[in-house]
């Protein structure tokens, strides 16, 4: 499992990989917001939690359609599926790699953006992204597994994944501003998503291998 994890991280980190792209996208979206709503720092501070959470979800979705598709198209997935690793473990490794190369860097970058937005609860925002983004990777992986054989799967993926991510955004943005009870709810949602998703994702991969 660690072999697959390390290889996916290596691919994401290399030129043309998704890790830097996601970070740059996150920062650009966050930059567009003040341009759109005006530079009023009090207003920006008030909406920052929600804005940064939405930007983070979109940035994490950016590379998601290739999570399985790249390996599916070049035949690697066939060989990975025939290896001693179960498809559930394959899914878990892919989710972990996706989070380590998108969710984690996004969370690490968020304090900087929080300063630019004049946020007071920087630590809460950071922790909310750290705890909540695994759910984005986990639920996104189900969508990535389902759409891997669709040529323009990247267009359908957000449509099927975003409504499922509503709880993450609600609890995440709540936790970012320090609302009572939001962080435990976010943690519970994230945990449940990470535990259940590998099974649904493996089922999706299995059905697409039969094509």
């Amino acid at each position: 499992m660690s072999a697959l994890l390390l290889r996916d991280i290596r691919l994401a980190a290399r030129a043309g990989g998704s890790a830097m792209l996601a970070l740059a996208f996150f920062a650009s979206v966050a930059t567009l917001v003040p341009l759109g709503v005006g530079p009023d720092l009090a207003l920006l501070a008030r909406i920052a939690g929600g804005v940064l959470w939405i930007a983070a979800v979109l940035a994490a979705l950016l590379a998601l359609d290739r999570l399985f598709q790249a390996d599916f198209e070049d035949g690697s997935l066939d060989m990975i599926a025939l290896s001693p690793l179960s498809l559930e473990s394959v899914a878990a490794a892919k989710i972990a790699a996706h989070w380590l190369t998108t969710g984690l860097p996004l969370a690490l970058l968020s304090p900087l953006l929080a300063v630019l937005f004049g946020v007071k609860t920087i630590a809460a925002l950071f922790v909310s992204l750290l705890v909540g983004t695994p759910a984005v990777s986990a639920i996104g992986a189900v969508g990535a597994g389902l759409t891997m054989s669709i040529r323009r799967g990247g267009l359908i993926l957000p449509l099927i994944v975003l409504p499922l991510l509503a709880p993450a955004v609600i609890f995440g943005a709540g936790a970012a501003v320090g609302s009572a009870g939001a962080l435990p709810l976010l943690g519970a949602f994230s945990f449940a998503a990470c535990v259940l998703s590998p099974f649904a994702t493996a089922a999706a991969v299995r059905l697409n291998l039969g094509s």
């Binding site: 290399r14 043309g16 066939d78």
Partner: peptide, 18 residues
């Protein structure tokens, strides 16, 4: 059965970046 199989598919499964 898959655990017995050595697979050489139609696609080469060679990663361009590695």
């Amino acid at each position: 059965r898959g655990k017995f199989v050595g697979w050489l598919g139609h696609h080469d499964a060679v990663k361009a970046q590695m």
